[in-house]
Every structure is written in structure tokens, then in C-alpha cells.
Nucleic acid binder design. Structure first.
Lengths: 329, 329
DNA sequence: CTGAAAGCGCTTACAG
DNA sequence: CTGAAAGCGCTTACAG
């Protein structure tokens, strides 16, 4: 591999000058600059990042810790982050925390060892207690990590959209399958849903709302929906809102197993608008998070002057009404 | 941050000794070793990876390039790779090629700049022509990159399992939705299917096989299945084998839209056994790739002595028969 | 068995 | 405007 030294020799200048040209220092005269640029190309020179990092203490690297990259939502987030990072000439190191705070901490420490410009952490479900102290900025995305600044969808408002949607379709006996209430997301989505529903359906128009806590996964949704639906038809909820698409898809399956037709007998709505939402039968009504916008914000923030300054940011959500919800008859 | 120097001072030894202890050099006497170890803990010393890399030219990093991390199969692969790499104390840098050879090349170059121990590349669909030359070992996973050693599922044998399965269920009018024949995977899966089917159904028992080429995605499967099924019932295939689960799920949807019941009127099988295969209705018969085994092989190989030596490795697959296929009536 | 010293490839005050 | 030189934090022959 060619080094600055080789380039300097080839161009007939000092290594300092080469370095300056490389860093677009305009105090170097054009004639020299051109000679250096030419030598760089001729030798196929690529700077040694480790050497650069040793001097500057910064590598063009961002670290990303997600609970589970095989979760489609996090995969999408990772994709958008990588794309935005690449745009800004940064590479992404990926780590899975497995939703385990101990693993999470270890992963974060390992990533910090690589001198990244910053870390993006989607916090593990269980509260991660022992925070690292470091000069590297850390922001949390989607799920808060420690007391780091959070960028997330406006979960509460998003859930509110679902409540409005279902209420608007005439549903007044509604079940809400929440996420784990140990998680901030789980709490926010539930709160947003309940608050909005109560706000809309007041007085004599009040809705019957039953909430069941679950995990965010398919199995949990299927299991809980089974319980909710295994009652006399006129006691059954006419609509189920779930805190995640996975849960909602599990609920779809439970309804099918029980011979309950969706949406004519039962409306079901999810949250996250994963790719799958469009592919299940019937297509799932869901709340769309702007993962690209969240990724853009997160990356830009980390590369900006004061990444951790100012407060949390909540990105707007939107409702995608599809075939799994309809007007009550 | 504490450095070797700080540790040396604290332990009352030279930096060379500290370095030796850190690298588990047993020529250092136990007494000194213990003093150093204690100092390391006391100061919370963590080695500067950039400095180490500058000397040794190697970082405990693996690079991974996938066409699209939001593809569930690649996401699973990435997860398994990260897990295996972490086991071996290595971190993973992730990049998406977007299935574009130009982007792929750029991503590979960027990753190589970080002095990784090795690169794992899931090749872009279109042949990537301009290969990089480098001292860093590169192996391709799932889809070949250039002329790098390949680790992949035994696609041909896997498809053969599906052919056997369908033939065994009595199907003799079968459609095969292939992947792009510009890709090695697409070709291998198709070849394996056709060859095995012809081998089993010979002479008067010969099967009618119609092959249609598509992309690996949902839309392609849905679209092609629509065409295949929009004919008189007795001319329709009784079984469709698809080159990917996405295609198969698209085909499921097409069948449903056309009012064709699966599996009683039509058997459908996929390939890859993505998580979703168990979640669609009916549950999808598919071929399972051992992503964990492939990941393990790939990572170990890169960290071994002669990563690029010996030839391609094909990992065994297995058939997961579920509810989307059944005996013909 | 331990330490002193060179050097990996950069960047950055500083001198000229 | 350009160059010489120090130094980032390690590892590794080498000397003792």
C-alpha cells in the first residue's frame, strides 16, 4: 500500500504538504496541489485510517446497536442509517444486544473501542442500568438508552391516529394489545391510544376498552387475540388495535383459526407498517414510522457540533388505512 | 483515556512489559503480570485499537456487504455473522450494495480502508466485474462475488428436495417460478429442481413442467402465479414451486385472489424458510438454509490461516413440509 | 525475564 | 506558501 511518503516522493513535495492537500487545505498553491492529486491517483493511494485515527482520535465510523437485526423494523432502520451514513462518508458498525442490557453494555464498550464518531443505540427492552461514560456522543433511537437524547416516532400521536380511525368507523367495543409496559414505547403507544379514544368517545358514546399487555412479537399477538376472541360473539370486541404489526398479524391468524372474518366481523390494526403489512391477507391497517427521517436525523445529529444538546425529537407518524379495518355494521 | 504508559507507571514496569502482559505473553513473570493486570483494572484501561492497528495492520473487524439488509434472509445472515464474530471478539461493519455492482465496489473499498481482518460479501445480483485486489481475504456468502471462494447452501440439492416432495405427493403438472437466471442462485435452484423432477418422473410417469423466470421478490411471485393460474382448472398446474419464499407468498396471494384454495386445489412451496414462512396462511412448505452454520463457517474461515484456500463449500439444506403442500386428489 | 527504543502512517503546530 | 519534526499509542525485535 502506498503511503503519504510515497505520494510525497512521487510529487516531489513533503509529506506535510500531501496531508494538507488531502485535507483540502487551500493554502497549498494550485501547482503543488495538482502534482499531489496526480501522484495520489497514479499510486492509487488510500489513506491509512488507523494512522489518521491515532492522531485525530476520530474515525469515520458510526456504531449502531439494535436489539435484533432480524426484526424487520430494526433492519429497515439499519438500512436507512447505513445509507445516510454512507452519504456522509461514514461506515456503520453493527451490533445486536439481544434485548439483554448486559450484552448491550458489552457491545457498546466494544464499539467505543473502535473510536467511532458516535453511537446510535436502540435500547434493550429492559432498562439498561450501568451507563458508560465517554467522550463519544450517544443518542438513542426508537427506544431510549439510559438518559441519552432520544429520536423516536411520536408513538402517542400515532396510536391516537388508530384510536381516531377505529372510533370513526363506529367501533365502540375495542381491545388494545399493548407492548410490554416495562418499555417506554409500550407505555407511550398504549397511553396515546387510550387517551385519544376516551377523548373522542365521551359520555353516552363512551367506548368499552379492554387492554391486555403482551410482548411485541407474533406469538404474543396470536395468543392474546385467541383469548380475546374466544367468547360469545356479542361480547367480542369489534376491533383490535395492536402495539405492533407482528402482534396484529398474530391476531389475524387467531381470527382466521377461530373462523372470524376480518374485517367484516373484526377490524384489526397494527403499528410500524413493516413491509409485511402490505403482504398479509387482508392487507393490514397500520401506522407508518418515517424510518428514513429518523435515520437522517440521528446520523446528522451525531455528526453535528452538539449532538447531545437540546431535547428529544419526535418524528411524525401517519396512518395507512388498508383492508383489515372497516366500518362497523 | 488511560494508555499503556499510564498502566506502566502505575504498575512500575515498562510499556513493553504491559504490552506483553496484554497479549498474554507468558514469558512475563507472574508477579509482574499480576501487578499489570491490577493496574489495568484500576485505571479501566482499554487498548487504543487504532494504535494497535497501525502497528499490526489488523483490526478485529469483519466487513459484511449485503445487497439489502432489509431482506429478511440477509438480516438473519447478518445476525448470525455478528453473533459468531462477537464470539471471536470481532466487530462487524455493515454495508448495503443495493444490488448494484458499482455501489458494491465502492462499499468494499470503503470497508477495506478500515483494515478489517476479512470481508464477507453477498454478491450483487448482476455480475460485479471490476474486482479489487487486496491482501485482505474476501469470501462470498450465498451469492458469489467475483471469483472469491463461496460458502452457500446447496441450492441444487435443496430444490431437489422440493421436487421429490411434490412428486411424492403425486403432482405431475408442476410450475416452477425461478429466480433471475443472471444469478448463480437462480440457476442452481432451477437446475436442481428440474433435474431431480425428471429423474423421478420418468417414462410414462413423466411430469409436465413449466418454468417461468422472475425476480426473487413478492411482486414477481404474485404476478407470475396470476398468469400461471388464470387458465382452465384442468390445465392449471397442481403445484407451484418457487425459488424464494417471497415469490411463494406472492403466489399464495394470487391463489387467494383467484379463489383457488391452497393446498387442496394447489400446492405451493418456497425456498429459504424465512420467519414469515411459518406465519402466512397456510404455513408455507419451504427449504431451510442453515444460516447459522453458513455464518459460522464464513467467520471462522476468515479468521483462519488460509481463508481463500480450498474450494467452495455447500451447506446442507433441509425441507420443512408445512400446510401449503398436500397429496393430490 | 525485562526494558529501551524504533517505527507503524498520519496530522499539526511551528519555523522559515 | 512549504517543509521539518514531533508525537498520537501501540508492538516488537533487540540488548542486557
Amino acid at each position: 500500500m502506498a503511503t503519504v511518503k510515497d505520494v510525497a516522493r512521487e510529487a516531489g513535495v513533503s509529506v506535510g504538504t500531501v496531508s494538507k492537500v488531502l485535507s483540502k487545505d487551500l493554502t497549498v498553491k494550485k501547482a503543488l496541489r495538482d502534482r499531489v492529486t496526480k501522484a495520489v491517483e497514479q499510486l492509487g493511494y488510500r489513506p491509512n485510517m488507523s494512522a489518521r485515527a491515532l492522531r485525530t482520535n476520530k474515525l469515520n465510523i458510526l456504531g449502531l446497536v439494535v436489539p435484533d437485526i432480524s426484526n424487520p423494523f430494526f433492519a429497515q432502520l439499519a438500512k436507512d442509517i447505513e445509507a445516510e451514513a454512507a452519504k456522509q462518508s461514514h461506515t456503520v458498525m453493527l451490533a445486536n444486544s439481544d434485548d439483554d442490557p448486559v450484552v448491550e453494555l458489552r457491545q457498546i464498550e466494544t464499539l467505543l473501542d473502535q473510536s467511532p464518531r458516535g453511537l446510535i443505540v436502540v435500547g434493550a427492552a429492559d432498562q439498561s442500568v450501568p451507563q458508560v461514560t465517554t467522550g463519544v456522543p450517544i443518542i438513542s433511537l426508537d427506544r431510549r438508552y439510559g438518559d441519552c437524547r432520544l429520536i423516536a416516532a411520536d408513538h402517542g400521536a400515532g396510536s391516537g391516529l388508530v384510536a381516531e380511525h377505529l372510533a370513526g368507523l363506529g367501533h365502540r367495543r375495542i381491545a388494545y394489545i399493548s407492548g410490554p409496559q416495562s418499555t417506554e414505547v409500550g407505555r407511550l403507544r398504549k397511553l396515546g391510544f387510550c387517551t385519544q379514544l376516551r377523548k373522542i368517545c365521551t359520555g353516552s358514546d363512551a367506548a368499552v376498552l379492554i387492554c391486555v399487555e403482551g410482548q411485541f412479537d407474533y406469538d404474543s399477538g396470536e395468543h392474546i387475540a385467541h383469548q380475546l376472541l374466544a367468547v360469545a360473539p356479542d361480547e367480542r370486541p369489534t376491533a383490535i388495535a395492536a402495539a405492533s404489526d407482528q402482534q396484529a398479524i398474530g391476531a389475524l391468524r387467531a381470527a382466521r383459526d377461530l373462523g372470524i372474518s376480518v374485517p367484516s366481523e373484526l377490524s384489526i390494526a397494527g403499528f410500524d407498517n413493516i413491509a409485511l403489512a402490505e403482504l398479509v391477507e387482508p392487507r393490514l391497517t397500520s401506522v407508518s414510522q418515517r424510518t428514513d427521517e429518523m435515520a437522517r436525523l440521528a446520523v446528522r445529529l451525531l455528526l453535528s457540533e452538539h449532538p447531545q444538546a437540546t431535547q428529544d425529537t419526535f418524528v411524525e407518524t401517519s396512518l395507512c388505512a388498508r383492508d383489515s379495518t372497516c366500518k362497523i355494521r
